[in-house]
């Protein structure tokens, strides 16, 4: 009897992406073949303009590829309608952005509750409890009633992480999460991401900083729209765990 291997969480085959500006085509990604399994902590690394953010946006259903195939949990995503994609965004994936993207003049708890408005699985009466659970996980329990603009950058990014956690998604995408932070806050944010990974979350991180990428178990190097190196060596994993121990 052959044991059927579970479908990978994310699988792309010959993925291409171009941007079109009137008649000019600007190709960004070329022939991306990628497989990411549940529970991985992956960093997509490359210089600015390499296409790493575009790749993350496609993987996170914020953008669509120009050609090629993208299977999510074994399911093809090419034929999905806009509402079906919105549903995947509300239940299966979530984002942490470089510039936090919190709603201004809005409390921490309301910011964290925001995805639950669009999450069909949560009853309105359960929202505060779920939001508080996510806020506890990033250590901001005492600040839940603060307005987002009353917090420091590091705290704001932790609110954004709580917001990404609140729907308990399968993948958390983080786009340069430390890019706007000082090194101490950045370190704290990465520690939280590592803790989440240890608890079983799949995390896909986009960064151009080597020090940030090194928190991950696996680093996909991307350059001019091509994957140039997929570093998932045992040595990487050890290094990542050592970093965690420190």
């Amino acid at each position: 009897m052959i044991k059927k291997e579970p479908a990978p969480l994310i699988e792309t085959k010959s993925l291409f992406k171009s941007y079109f500006n009137e008649t000019i085509e600007t190709p960004v990604l070329f022939d991306i073949n990628l497989r990411i399994d549940a529970g991985e902590f992956v960093a997509i690394m490359g210089p600015s303009g390499s296409g790493k953010s575009t790749l993350m946006h496609i993987l996170g259903f914020l953008d669509v590829p120009t050609a090629g195939h993208y299977h999510f949990k074994g399911e093809s995503t090419e034929e999905k309608t806009e509402d079906e994609l919105a549903r995947i965004r509300s239940t299966n994936v979530s984002f942490v952005f470089q510039s936090f993207n919190l709603l201004p003049r809005t409390t921490v708890i309301d910011n964290v509750s925001l995805p639950l408005l669009y999450h069909s699985g949560t009853r309105p009466s359960d929202r505060p409890a779920r939001a508080m659970k996510a806020i506890n996980a990033v250590g901001l329990t005492e600040r839940s009633t603060y307005l987002s603009n009353q917090l420091s950058g590091g705290q704001q990014q932790r609110v954004a992480i709580a917001r990404a956690l609140v729907t308990e998604p399968e993948v958390i995408f983080a786009d340069e999460p430390t890019g706007n932070l000082d090194s101490a806050s950045g370190k704290h944010v990465m520690e939280i991401l590592q803790k989440l990974h240890k608890e079983g979350h799949t995390i896909i991180l986009v960064t151009h900083e080597k020090t940030t990428a090194e928190h991950a178990e696996r680093i996909i190097h991307i350059m001019d729209g091509h994957i140039v190196k997929d570093d998932r060596s045992f040595a990487r994993r050890i290094a990542s765990q050592v970093k965690e121990l420190k």
Binding site: G60, L62, E82, D83, A86, R87, R89, S90, T91, S94, F95, N101, L103, L114, P115, L117, Y118, H119, R163, T167
Partner: peptide
């Protein structure tokens, strides 16, 4: 942001 968090066109 709302769309990234799962808001549909209708919402």
């Amino acid at each position: 942001l709302r769309k990234a968090l799962g808001a549909r066109r209708k919402d």
